[in-house]
Simulated scan of single mutants.
Amino acid sequence: MSENYKSEDPVPDESRSDELKSADFAIPLPDTTDWGEPDRGVRVKPADGRGILMRDCQIGRAGEVPEVAFDGHGLAQRGSVVDPGTPDFGFAIREKKLVWADNIADLYEQGKAGQWDATTDIPWDELPVLPDDLEQAVCQVMTFLIQNEYLAMYLPAKFMNRIDPQFSEVVLFLATQVMDEARHAEVFTKRALANGGGLQYVSAATEWSLRSLLAQDDYSNGSFLMHVLGEGT
């Protein structure tokens, strides 16, 4: 027997273990009496051969897109029963007319379906060896394109947290654009480094131009200018 053991030490009562778990350490559930009732009984059924699309989920209260986002809805999905004490997140874009399109759920599905893998879908081991001057020229173009792809990634990303998630399909669609542009930056970086040419020179003039585009506060203007002046060049 251990020298540290004292006969007067209390012996744990294992019979109280369940009682301790259920009473002493229980986390009380919130009282949802005044919150309203969930939209029970609304079921989305997967279609044969295609599963469940986001458009299919626009049913019941989840399909009721408000003209103006409700106050105090937080980050809850549209159609959820929200605690009245939910804080205001201060989303700047709360009007349907500013962001919504009837086919936005379909655009999101298309954005997902069009994804490709810059790691495995390009035969990197089959790149031809180029003369040094030509390889340097290719890598200079890659370096320039990477700058533009970062702009194309950051511009939609900066608008995502301004949009109330009651227009969730819009936020999801912008996320596919961010991912798409991220992959472009990835593949151009890999190409610059794959043949020994390396990343090349970055002009301050280009950076000033891209900075002015990123500073746009109107998404339509910013997106148009980005695709014409940024990626279009």
Rank of each mutant, 00 (worst) to 15 (best):
G49T: 06
A92P: 07
A76P: 03
P30L: 09
F144E: 11
Q140E: 15
F173L: 02
R162I: 03
S2M: 01
N221E: 12
D34F: 07
T86H: 15
G41H: 02
V202D: 10
N103E: 14
E67K: 01
A182Q: 06
K6P: 01
A194P: 08
E95G: 05
P10I: 03
D48L: 12
S22G: 15
R43I: 15
A92T: 15
A105R: 01
E8A: 13
L134Q: 15
N148K: 05
L75C: 06
N161M: 15
D125A: 15
K21D: 12
G114S: 09
F70P: 01
M226T: 13
C139K: 03
E14L: 15
D71K: 14
M1W: 10
V81L: 02
H184L: 05
V228C: 02
H73V: 04
V187S: 04
A157G: 11
P10T: 04
D48A: 12
D71A: 13
Q58K: 07
P128N: 13
G72E: 04
F188C: 10
D217A: 04
E19K: 11
E169H: 05
I163P: 02
S15R: 13
F224K: 08
V202W: 09
S22V: 07
V65S: 02
D13R: 14
R55P: 00
S203N: 14
Q166P: 02
A62V: 08
E64W: 03
W100C: 12
P165F: 08
I104R: 00
G60L: 00
V65C: 08
K158N: 09
I93C: 09
Q77C: 12
D13H: 04
Q200G: 05
D48K: 14
W35F: 02
P156Q: 09
L53N: 07
F144S: 05
N103M: 10
A204W: 11
I104E: 00
L155I: 01
G198T: 04
V11D: 14
Y154E: 01
V42W: 04
N221T: 15
E109C: 06
P123D: 05
A192T: 14
K45Q: 07
M160D: 10
D18P: 10
E64M: 09
V202K: 08
G90I: 11
D121H: 12
V138G: 00
L130H: 06
D121T: 05
W116P: 08
F25I: 10
G114T: 00
Q110P: 00
E109A: 10
E64Y: 03
L134G: 06
V99E: 03
K112W: 01
M1P: 12
P128K: 04
E14K: 11
V228H: 01
N161R: 07
L225P: 05
G51V: 00
D34M: 02
R61V: 06
L130V: 09
P123V: 11
G49L: 07
G197D: 10
E37N: 03
V99W: 06
L29F: 12
W116S: 03
D56G: 03
R16Q: 14
D13P: 03
H73I: 06
T206M: 12
D31V: 06
V129L: 04
L213P: 01
Q140W: 11
L213M: 15
I122D: 05
T33K: 10
S80N: 09
G85C: 12
V178A: 06
F91T: 08
D34Y: 01
T86M: 15
S220D: 06
P165K: 09
Q136T: 11
P38C: 02
V68N: 11
A23G: 13
S209T: 13
T86S: 14
N103A: 02
Q136H: 12
